[in-house]
Design a protein around this nucleic acid. Structure first.
Length: 437
RNA sequence: GGAGAGAUGGCUGAGUGGUCGAAAGCGCUCCCCUGCUAAGGGAGUAAGGGUGAUUAAGCCCUUCGAGGGUUCGAAUCCCUCUCUCUCCGCCA
C-alpha cells in the first residue's frame, strides 16, 4: 500500500507517478471521496464526544440521586443522539471500506531510477555475462534432450493431471534436487541467508500483505471450499510474511532468508504461450531470497540481491543478462525490478529466470512490518525485497540446452558435480543410472 | 474427531457495568543518592487515527483476540468466529 498521507496531501502528484506505469487513477473521484471522508469523520467524532459526555452525566446524576425528571430528559436526549450516531457511523464505515478497497488496488510508486516505458520493449539491459555457446550444430531444445535422456515425461503428467505439468525421472529428477540443494547451500554459506522451511498453503491475509490479493486472485489456485487457503504462487508470500506484525530492532536488520518452495500458478490468460516444455508450468520449484532492511539500506541491498541471484548463473556457467524493467513492466507491488534472463539456444533469445524487486515500504504497510531504533523509539516501516535465486525448473532446462553436445549429452558444471555424486556428464541414450554418492 | 481451559499494554498479571487506557510487578527512560559494582529513593513510560500549518502544543475519537448484540454507558453481560494451550483418539 502506498502512503495514504502522501496520497491525501498530493493526490495529483501520486496520480502522475502512477501514470508512469500505465495506471490511471480516478483523481476526481478520489478527491471527492476523501473530502467526504473528512466531513463524515469529523461529524462522527463530534457525535461520539457528545454521547460520551452525556453518558458520563447520567452516571453522575445517578450517583447523586438527581430527580427522575432530569434523568429522563437526559436519557431522551441521548436516545435522539444515538439515532444520529448510528446513521453517521454507518455512512462513515461504508465510505472507509470503499476507500480501503481503493487503496489496495493502487500499485506501488515507481522508483525515480526506473526508466519510462509501458512494456518490455522499454526495459534496459544493464549488463551481460558470458556469451551464447557456439555449438557448430543445430542445438536441440530441452524437450527433445529430456526425451533422449529419458528423464522428462510430459505425457504421464498430462494423463494424471493435465497440461503444463511434468514428470522428471532418474538423473533429471536428481539434477533438479541437486540444483535446489546447491542454491540453498550457496546462498546460506556465501551470503549468510538463513534457510527457512515454510507452509505452501497460505491464507488470504498473507497474499494481501505481499500484494497478490485482492487484484490477482485469478492467478492463484484456491483450496476450497472448506478452508480459504491458496497454494503459494511463489515462496515470497510465506517467507515475507515471516515479518508480518513484527517490529524489528535496528540490530536485527537486515534479515536474509532463503527458502525452497514449489510454486503454483493458474497461468490464466497465458493460453497458447510457451505451451511446449518446462518454461511455463502450473507447478515449479524455486529457491527464493527475501530481505528485510532499514529504509535507507534497501537500494544497496537490492543491488546485492541481484548479484546473489546472478552468482548462481555464474557458478553454473550459464550466459545471462540483467534487465532493469521500465515503469510499465514493473510488477504491482514493486518500486523497482531487475530481471535476470538466461540464454536459451533453442529459442535463440534470453528468457526470465529470476526477478529481483525492491518493494520499499509497500508490502511493509500491508504486512504491518516495522523496525525501531531501540526499545523506546517510534517504529517505522521496514523495506522488503525479494528475488528468485533461482527458478529451478528453468535453470534445469537452461542447463540442458546450453551444455548439450551433438549426441545429446549434457556436461555438468564443476560446481554442481559434488551434488551429483561426482559425475561429469549426463549421457544421452544411455541407461538411466542413479549416480553413486 | 472428542473433552476442557484461555486470549488484557514491551513482558508477567489484576480487573466490582459508570473519570478504567486499565492495579501491581518486571523491563525501559530521566533525576537523586552512592569510590566502582550491587542496592536504594523519586518521576515518567501503550498504540492508531482526526483536527491543528503535513511534520508543535492543545483538543478530540478509537483500541483490552475479531465481528455482532444488550445498555444512556461494556475489558466487564449475551451470541458468533478465529487462534493458542491441556488431555484423549488418530496419524508421518
Amino acid at each position: 500500500m502506498i502512503d495514504i498521507k502522501l496520497l491525501r496531501q498530493d493526490p495529483s502528484g501520486v496520480a502522475a507517478q502512477l501514470v508512469r506505469r500505465g495506471f490511471r487513477m480516478d483523481l476526481e473521484w478520489y478527491v471527492s471521496q476523501e473530502a467526504e471522508r473528512r466531513t463524515l469523520q469529523m461529524a462522527l467524532e463530534d457525535l461520539r464526544k457528545q454521547r460520551n459526555e452525556g453518558s458520563r452525566k447520567v452516571g453522575e446524576l445517578k450517583a447523586t440521586k438527581a430527580t427522575p425528571d432530569e434523568l429522563g430528559m437526559r436519557l431522551e436526549k441521548l436516545a435522539k443522539l444515538d439515532r444520529e450516531l448510528v446513521a453517521a457511523d454507518q455512512a462513515f464505515r461504508k465510505l472507509s471500506a470503499t476507500l480501503e478497497a481503493f487503496y489496495l488496488t493502487l500499485p506501488n510508486l515507481p522508483d525515480s531510477t526506473v526508466p519510462e516505458g509501458m512494456d518490455e520493449s522499454a526495459n534496459q539491459e544493464v549488463r551481460r555475462w558470458n556469451t551464447a555457446p557456439d555449438f557448430g550444430f543445430e542445438p536441440r531444445d530441452h524437450v527433445e534432450l529430456g526425451e533422449m535422456i529419458q528423464g522428462m515425461d510430459f505425457s504421464s503428467a498430462r494423463e494424471m493431471t493435465g497440461a503444463r505439468f511434468v514428470v522428471l525421472k532418474g538423473i533429471l529428477a536428481r539434477l533438479q534436487r541437486a540444483l535446489t540443494t546447491f542454491m540453498l547451500d550457496w546462498h546460506a554459506r556465501e551470503y549468510g541467508y538463513e534457510e527457512v522451511y515454510v507452509p505452501h498453503l497460505v491464507n488470504r491475509q498473507s497474499l494481501t500483505g505481499t500484494g497478490q490479493l485482492p487484484k490477482f486472485e485469478s492467478d492463484l489456485f484456491r483450496v476450497g471450499p472448506d478452508v480459504d487457503w491458496f497454494l503459494i504462487p511463489t515462496g515470497e508470500v510465506p517467507v515475507t510474511n515471516l515479518a508480518r506484525d513484527h517490529t524489528f530492532l535496528r540490530s536485527e536488520l537486515p534479515k536474509r532468508w532463503v527458502a525452497h518452495t514449489p510454486c503454483y500458478r493458474s497461468e490464466a490468460g497465458s493460453y497458447g504461450k510457451d505451451l511446449k516444455g518446462m518454461i511455463r508450468q502450473h507447478q515449479f520449484e524455486k529457491v527464493e531470497l527475501v530481505q528485510i532492511t532499514l529504509p535507507e539500506a534497501s537500494p544497496q541491498a537490492h543491488e546485492q540481491l541481484v548479484e546473489h541471484a546472478e552468482s548462481i548463473l555464474i557458478q553454473l556457467e550459464l550466459p545471462y543478462r540483467v534487465m532493469l524493467l521500465c515503469a510499465g513492466d514493473t510488477g504491482f507491488a514493486s518500486a523497482k525490478t531487475y530481471d535476470l534472463e538466461v540464454w536459451l539456444p533453442s529459442q535463440k533469445r534470453y528468457r526470465e529466470i529470476s526477478s529481483c524487486s525492491n518493494f520499499r515500504d509497500f508490502q511493509a504497510r500491508r504486512l504491518n512490518a516495522r523496525w525501531k531504533e531501540d526499545a523506546k523509539s517510534k517504529p517505522d516501516w521496514v523495506h522488503t525485497l525479494n528475488g528468485s535465486g533461482l527458478a529451478v525448473g528453468r535453470t534445469l532446462l537452461a542447463l540442458l540446452e546450453n551444455r548439450q553436445d551433438e549426441g545429446g549429452g549434457i556436461s555438468i558444471p564443476s560446481r554442481l558435480q559434488p551434488y551429483l555424486g561426482g559425475i561429469h556428464e549426463i549421457r544421452s541414450g544411455a541407461k538411466v543410472e542413479h549416480p553413486p554418492g
